[in-house]
Structures are given as structure tokens and as C-alpha cells.
């Protein structure tokens, strides 16, 4: 169980997140909803222990600050937006780094279990034929899958997604989110994601947290959240009507 209690995050004197509380259980996929600057990434960063916050975040009953870097990495993995810069490493080398927190080896080489997990992760993400290719020779979608394979190899219970499908085309977006969904169901893991696309949020999410300027407007089931008038306030437009208008093209051209 992952519990956020009265979380606030401040940058200077400005609040990015104010008094957010939520409890998450195995198998939950929480979608953070809100306009740009609503505080979605800040919450993800707090969970990734990358920003300071006030309040309390507990994982399995223990405050997250009490975990060592390695112990925390065994439990929580992060997939961010695709970086511009890429390491001069091969796909296998990048995925192997996912085993960092599990490996006890001082020098090079991976144990049998580590090797197995790495190869599994590469297979699950469909990268077997790219395994030895250097990262910079892959397309954006393939690179992002390599980073997903790294997180899978990390073998965590919680997965944080910070706009992971930005800059990916439709096919890669769906295959990436599908792979995560399968992982969540099999492992009964917790996923927390910031996703811009509300249709994708509806497809994959199970719960939602609506944010407006860092404040929590609504927390509950994703389908209810998307039809709740509070989401109109959060995005400052009539969400349901707008989405129906945008996608009406597909209905009329059947």
C-alpha cells in the first residue's frame, strides 16, 4: 500500500502541490489529471524522492525517506519522458542497469537471476532483435521501450510514469501502455501516471486524482472523474462536450 498524507510541495514561496492525500492499493492505476502546471509532475517527483515535500508518504507502512537508495529502487521504478540525449550504451547494457539495486557484484558481469530478468524484460518489450544495438541507432519509440524494459528488469511494485508517451506515435503509445497494463495485472503492481490524453487515461486508468493549481479537487474512480463537473473546472473547458466534438468525426464517417 502506498499512502500520501497532506502532501505539499513548494518552489520558493509558490505552492506546486497543496495538501494532497490519497491511498493506493495493489493493482491500482492512478491517473493524475489537470491542466499544465497543476502539479502532476511534482507529485510524481515527490514519490520518486526527487523533490522536497511536507507531509508524509508511506510505502508498506514505512516512510519513504527511511529506505536506502537501493532498497527504494527495488520497490519503486520511474519511466519519464523520452530524453533528448542518449547514452552510448547498447539496449542490453541499459536494461542491465535496471538490476543495479539487486546486484551485489562489485565488478562487471551479472548473476544468473539478473541475466534472466534482463532477457525476460527485453523479450516482453519486444526488443530481442535490438538487444545488442546501441541506443542512439533506435527510433524514439524503440528507445522508450528499452527504458520500459529497464524498469521491468528493476522488478518493482510501484511504477511512476511521467508523460512517458509524449513524442511517441500512436502505435508505440498503445504498445507501451498495453505492456504496462499487463505488468500491472500480473504483478498486482501500483501505477501512478501523468497522462495528457484523457481518452488514454480512461482506457488504462482505474482511479483518478483531479488537480487544480496544486489543490486536490476530486479523488475516486476514473470513469466518474471524467464525467464529474470538477474536471471542467480543472481544465477550464467543458471536457465531455469538447471530447465528443473532437472525436465526432469518427462517428459520422462510419
Amino acid at each position: 500500500m502506498l499512502e500520501l498524507k497532506n502532501i505539499s510541495i513548494q518552489y520558493g514561496s509558490k505552492y506546486a502541490v497543496k495538501d494532497v492525500s490519497i491511498k493506493l492499493y495493489s493493482g491500482d492505476w492512478l491517473v493524475l489529471l489537470g491542466a499544465n502546471g497543476a502539479g502532476k509532475s511534482s507529485i510524481i517527483n515527490a514519490l520518486a524522492r526527487a523533490v522536497k515535500y511536507t507531509g508524509e508518504i508511506k510505502l508498506e507502512g514505512k516512510k519513504i525517506e527511511q529506505y536506502s537508495p537501493r532498497e527504494y529502487a527495488k520497490r519503486v521504478g520511474v519511466l519519464s519522458q523520452l530524453h533528448e540525449k542518449d547514452p552510448s550504451l547498447s539496449v542490453t547494457e541499459v536494461v542491465s542497469l535496471g538490476r543495479y539495486s539487486h546486484s551485489k557484484r562489485l565488478f562487471s558481469g551479472l548473476s544468473k537471476i539478473d541475466t534472466q530478468k534482463v532477457q525476460q524484460a527485453i523479450a516482453v518489450t519486444g526488443l530481442t532483435e535490438y538487444a545488442e544495438r546501441p541506443m542512439h541507432t533506435l527510433s524514439g519509440g524503440e528507445r522508450q521501450r528499452a527504458y520500459l524494459a529497464q524498469v521491468f528488469a528493476q522488478d518493482t511494485e510501484v511504477l511512476l510514469l511521467d508523460e512517458p508517451v509524449n513524442s511517441l506515435d500512436m502505435k508505440y503509445t498503445l504498445s507501451l501502455l498495453d505492456a504496462i497494463d499487463i505488468w500491472r495485472k500480473e504483478k498486482q503492481g501500483i501505477v501512478i501516471s501523468a497522462l495528457h490524453d484523457l481518452s488514454l487515461a480512461a482506457c488504462f486508468g482505474s482511479r483518478a486524482l483531479i488537480l487544480l493549481k496544486g489543490e486536490q479537487l476530486y479523488e475516486g474512480d476514473i470513469k466518474e472523474a471524467l464525467y464529474n463537473p470538477k474536471i471542467d473546472t480543472a481544465y477550464d473547458l467543458p471536457v465531455v462536450k469538447t471530447m465528443q466534438d473532437i472525436y465526432s468525426f469518427w462517428d459520422t464517417n462510419k
Binding site: 526527487a50 536506502s68 537508495p69 527495488k74 521504478g77 520511474v78 547514452p87 543495479y100 539495486s101 528493476q154
Partner: peptide, 21 residues
């Protein structure tokens, strides 16, 4: 060396996989 490999992904990414940055 393994930590240096992790840094080549980025400092935040190194932290996410468990490196004591």
C-alpha cells in the same frame, strides 16, 4: 563503473535505479 554507466542515463535516472548519487 556501474554507477558511471547509470550516470550516462542522467542524474535523476541514476537515482531512480538506486544509485546513491
Amino acid at each position: 563503473a556501474r554507477e558511471l554507466n547509470a550516470f550516462s542515463l542522467g542524474e535523476d535516472e541514476a537515482m531512480h535505479i538506486g544509485v546513491d548519487v
